[in-house]
Design a protein around this nucleic acid. Structure first.
Lengths: 224, 224
DNA sequence: GCAAAAGTGTTAGACTTACACCCATGT
DNA sequence: ACATGGGTGTAAGTCTAACACTTTTGC
């Protein structure tokens, strides 16, 4: 039986936060500062060892909450990274998950000395192979948002189409036509109108929508 | 550090072989008969433990060749299965790969007493959670063939468009219009004409094509 | 010539994109 | 009134599916 191989989980956690200067919504992710070798003082993805009594998805959710006190609205396995030289000295296989959290949740993050949010497109040099992992997670998010209803997970129970469009635009980094976006959402079965309307705003009230069908796709089986 | 968790690899190996009766090309995969508990005498996916000195992809390729003496034309990670109760008695995390092999290769498979090819759509009850794994691999293959150039991996260096179309039809289990298929292939950058033509066949000779660009996509990094 | 598969042309419909324009609200 | 974003209409362009038709071989 295999031995001497450490089995870990890590998480790439995406949330939308306003950019420091421009104020526009931008993808961010929380990183943890390492306090020991290897890569002492480098920033790294939140993670930890897999316990014998928990599934991989549970381990990811646990370690995610432990380091950031966040609970994800969406959690999916990204990839198992198992190159021999990923970690100096030790042999570690990391099963990496990616997660989306609501903006409301983010507000109550425990922002300790050693946990910080970074703009996803402007990261420092991370520990291990974590830069590549983030790149891959970003690619996956941007691909998946085009064919699966994941963007909703950034928002609350109900939302306007403008808010949802804002999420898409932040992820894809390009403007979308409001008229066409509306029709595409109507055509897809992703959202349904609630009948409620917003009252705020110095303009015509917008209808509120909610997510409709649970995420589709024969993914192996629903994570946590 | 994690301990007491076995780390294994398994492989879902697809090849096209003529159906026993109809003679049509059908997706097949090789299974291995288990010779000990648990699931003694059940059929299972080829697999084995990960060695400390090899990457996950290498482990998959090694175990794949060890049990079937096949070398894949395509190899990609499918998923890491890590539920607690996957295996009775022991805790095992399996990183599963899926592979495509050329029909020529298949001819020289070592078909021992304990290795047998099964039609992918007509499997017995397998050991562990292997039926679900195969279902997921099938879904992945059928999805991926629609947007990525993987079908070529079932064929040799050169092939006619009719042969390639046959591969698509076998995977997708529906007929494709030859005229439209030709144009779609021409539009995509997947294949290019060689200038050579077939001579066999009691009909107009067909031009031979070859695969063009290597598989695309920011997959994490190229496996083996 | 005839059958069979290779390969080309053509058209109807679906979907995408761009953008003009009207609607309902706060100030 | 008018600025602002919500929401509808519409037409051009692109992509897809279906199928008629011509080409080139073996028998």
């Amino acid at each position: 039986m295999s031995d001497g191989i450490g089995l870990a989980v890590s998480a790439v956690i995406f949330a939308l936060r306003p950019h420091r200067e421009s104020g526009e919504q931008v993808l961010h992710l929380p990183l943890v500062r390492r306090l020991r070798a290897p890569f002492d003082d480098h920033w790294a993805l939140p993670g930890g060892w897999v316990d014998e009594a928990e599934s991989l998805a549970d381990a990811a959710a646990r370690t995610l909450e432990a380091t950031t006190s966040l609970r994800p609205a969406y959690l999916e396995q990204l990839y198992a990274f198992g190159e021999v030289e990923r970690s100096p000295d030790a042999r570690v296989v990391s099963v990496v998950y990616w997660a989306l959290v609501r903006s409301e949740e983010v507000a109550r993050t425990r922002v300790g000395q050693n946990v910080r949010w970074f703009a996803a497109d402007d990261l420092p040099t991370l520990a291990f192979d974590h830069n590549r992992i983030v790149d891959y997670a970003l690619w996956r998010l941007r691909s998946k948002v085009e064919y699966a209803p994941v963007a909703q997970s950034f928002l609350g129970e109900t939302f306007t189409l403008a808010e949802l469009r804002g999420v898409y635009e932040a992820i894809l980094q390009r403007p979308l036509d409001p008229a066409n976006f509306r029709r595409q959402m109507a055509a897809s079965d992703e959202v349904e109108p609630t009948g409620e309307f917003t009252t705020t705003g110095r303009h015509r009230p917008a209808q509120l929508f909610r997510s409709k069908a649970a995420p589709t796709a024969p993914s192996p089986w629903r994570a946590s």
